[in-house]
């Protein structure tokens, strides 16, 4: 039987290399796979393009990647309250693509769903429309937003079975469930791995077809 469980975070990030595009789930700390944050640092990769809602805070989170200067570009909706990111932003050593949050998640969804993009009313008449194709539908102006893909999508789930079916916990689901459809390799950090058959099929949010690797968060 299919079994996608790997030993630990280090095994979950196996194959990541310089210049890769990486999606990281989470809204603030909720849904952020913290074990992956550390494991990617340990791999010593650089020049990453990071797709994430936030750019870390000053705490123990994605800010570690900016402190270590391994991110070349971030595609993000709200990189505020992020001390290490802000330092590099001011110094001009990291590129920021600022994306409205709903557009960010829908671009990721388009990537995972095999769509060539979508038409959004969000940003019309603002700087967020600059350089984008305008399309009028039924008299209303939209802008063409393009899909986002990633070499790796790393998200935090609550429970996963050994097949790779995943449930989430409360508001920690956020961008995770969508990112889990859009990575070439998808790895899920969970609180606990359970046996096949233990998850209520109605409660599974990410079906195993999307998931390549699962590991249980270590209880440190």
């Amino acid at each position: 039987m299919r079994n996608v469980v790997v030993e630990d975070a280090a095994a979950a990030v196996e194959g990541i290399k310089d210049g890769d595009t990486v999606m990281m789930g989470g809204f603030g700390g909720a849904g952020l796979p913290l074990g992956v944050v550390k494991a990617v640092l340990d791999r010593g990769v650089r020049d990453l393009t990071l797709i994430s809602n936030n750019a870390g805070s000053t705490e123990d989170d994605l800010s570690l990647w900016f402190e270590a200067r391994i991110v070349r570009k971030i595609v993000c909706s709200y990189p505020r309250s992020a001390k290490h990111f802000a330092e590099q932003y001011r110094a001009g050593t990291v590129e920021l693509e600022l994306v409205p949050q709903g557009t960010l998640v829908e671009r990721i969804r388009a990537g995972g769903a095999g769509l060539g993009g979508f038409l959004s009313p969000v940003g019309v008449g603002t700087v967020f429309a600059d350089g984008k194709e305008k399309i009028v539908v039924d008299g209303r102006e939209f802008i063409l937003e393009l899909p986002l893909h990633a070499d790796f999508a790393f998200v935090k789930g609550h429970l996963a079975d050994t097949l790779g079916n995943v449930t989430y916990n409360k508001t920690a689901r956020n961008h995770c469930a969508v990112m889990a459809t859009a990575g070439r390799t998808v790895a899920v950090e969970v609180d606990r791995v359970v046996n096949v058959g233990d998850l209520d099929p109605e409660a599974i949010v990410t079906p195993c077809i999307f998931v390549d690797r699962v590991f249980a968060r270590s209880s440190r």
Binding site: A55, S77, Y78, P79, R80, A82, F85, A86, Y89, R90, L96, L98, V99, P100, Q101, G102, T103, P121, V122, G123, V124, T126, F128
Partner: peptide, 17 residues
Amino acid sequence: DNGSPPGIGGAIDLAVG
């Protein structure tokens, strides 16, 4: 103000929708 990174978040989606 270029001194601090801008953030747009979900305010723009609410404003439109």
